[in-house]
Nucleic acid binder design. Structure first.
Lengths: 322, 322
DNA sequence: ACGTGCCAATAGCACGTGCTAGAGGGTCGT
DNA sequence: ACGACCCTCTAGCACGTGCTATTGGCACGT
């Protein structure tokens, strides 16, 4: 900035005014300063900007790069934040990068609120976070207490899927559960409840949120005497395994068995999968979470929000009449 | 920092010395300062640190969150950078976040070098980047010129795969190509060359780096009179489609047709895929790219490096005797 | 000629930290 | 008892920017 000012023979302050679009400078000055900035390849130093400003308008995001769904959410968060004039400090954690390390880095970045993402991968309890930064939990296991909490309404989603299958005439509908994974218990319960309310008895096989677990669970189901005519997987990844197992046994989908997923991830739309699933609309999740974070960043002190985004049924060709 | 000093009745400078592990302060002081910092929930302000330091020891990474392989690379880069005392500024771009926007944000963060990732998804030509920041390209389409360039040795990888199949007795080996995708031409050429050197004639079907394209290409191959006994997909995603097509036609793998992938992504290790592929070892890629970036950051002015990481053949159960 | 008002541009401090230079108070040797 | 030394701590400036307060210059009215 100093260089630009010297180059033009004006003061540094004038340059500052122009570059942050403040009122004052004449059109002529604006033109010249902008041209010089372009010419000299100037980019404002975010550190200095952040340091000077009273507020940072910056939110931290703690997430895992491994999970495609979280990566997707982060992208939505980026646009949602930009639309409100906020920027995001990304804090990816992974096997080689402990959560605590990523957290410490975020806390050094003047964040006004912290968004914690946790998909189906599971996340150890969040600890070591200071009470100075408000926390918004997004889609993870139930937070301790007192924090904003945004997630999909899994119960509503499973009710939609059960109804869909029952309406198609299915009566032996099995559920391949996420086992001890986050939200798995809620999904299992929602499934059982909706089955009973339709006069059917639930049939759950414990597995996990992985392709391999889905594969094994499906094999197990096929080996029974009265194998089900429909299989509801705990999520899409799990459904991929189920589909693979059926294909390897030569079982027609949806001819003999219908299959459903949960998430509407990209795999669900592969033409040879074409999975009936529920769409949790990551944009809506991101929007709701960001709204909560912005509210806290602005000093909001209302009661913790507990937003439940209602998913949408997406019918594709993996389900059909019993 | 000021608060801690006041809390203990010492000077701010002493606190500074302790917290950055400089020599000088006594053990007693260290203990007390650290305890106070913990108690007050202090985290050093990175902005101020960055502003003060002459060097930032910070590297920018431009990538896409959509691509799992890039996400994986970023994670390796994070650990590699940490090991060398560098930090990374992440610049994810996506549909709603133009590359230029992410780039501008990075340039405002005092980066000393810029790593540009581009997997199989393709990336428009990089422009608008100032000549003040050295650039290292990682795995993408050939950079214009004069930039460091790190990527997998696709030719060596395909040679390994062709040799593997030929040694198993296959003679009709088809290649489902990545079409106009980045590096697809190089892989196609490497395949053709190695086939000829083994006395066989190449047989390429144009497709793309997606599951759907792989599926369609495989269907096309199966409909021929003399269908191949082995199919080499352009990458793992493509191989997933090929496998699905074979399964839906009841073609045994590897009984009647062998299948190979390229990348050793997570799908390749799914038990019902168990794909023979080549492992590009993202750690080695990340390490090499980071080394180049650090060299440039340190002011290195040598000739542009052109590192080719030699991949490793991973034999699984999707290939067998002809 | 002199004040009044306005527009354009400038002066100077503050943000939180790292680093160089220096200050204070002990201990030791003579 | 006095200076030389070391060990520990402190004073103060600099980094690049935003913002408040102030200055300079011009046109206008009296």
């Amino acid at each position: 900035m100093h260089d630009i000012a010297e180059h033009l023979g004006v003061s540094r302050q004038l340059v500052s005014l122009v570059l942050r679009d403040a009122e004052g400078p004449s059109e002529e000055s604006r033109r010249r300063v902008r041209a010089a900035a372009q010419e000299l390849g100037y980019h404002p130093d975010q550190s200095a900007r952040l340091l000077r400003g009273r507020r940072s308008h910056r939110l931290g995001v703690l997430f895992s790069m491994k999970e495609p769904f979280e990566a997707d959410l982060v992208e939505r968060l980026l646009t949602a934040a930009a639309a409100r004039g906020y920027s995001l400090a990304l804090g990816p954690h992974g096997p080689s990068r402990p959560q605590a390390g990523a957290l410490a880095e975020l806390l050094g970045q003047r964040i006004e609120a912290l968004l914690v993402l946790s998909g189906d991968s599971g996340l150890d309890t969040i600890d070591g976070l200071p009470d100075t930064v408000p926390l918004v939990q997004l889609g993870g296991p139930a937070a301790g207490d007192g924090h904003d909490d945004v997630r999909a309404d899994d119960a509503a989603g499973f009710a939609l899927l059960v109804d869909h299958l029952v309406d198609l005439g299915h009566r032996r509908i099995a559920h391949v559960s996420g086992g001890s994974g986050p939200n798995a218990a809620a999904r299992r319960t929602a499934y059982a409840q909706q089955m009973r309310s339709r006069g059917l008895s639930p049939d759950t096989v414990e597995a996990a949120y992985t392709e391999e677990a889905g594969y094994r669970a499906a094999v197990q189901l096929l080996d029974r005497e009265a194998s089900p005519t429909a299989i509801m997987a705990a999520n899409d990844r799990c459904a991929v395994g189920v589909m693979a197992a059926l294909a390897s046994r030569g079982v027609a989908v949806p001819g003999r068995v219908s299959v459903t997923g949960f998430d509407d991830s990209s795999v669900a739309s592969w033409p040879f999968m074409d999975l009936t699933t529920v769409d949790v609309d990551p944009s809506a999740l991101a929007e709701a979470a960001l709204e909560a974070a912005v509210y806290r960043a602005g000093g909001g002190t209302g009661a913790p929000a507990a937003e439940r985004v209602v998913p949408r049924l997406v019918v594709r060709s993996s389900t059909g009449p019993a």
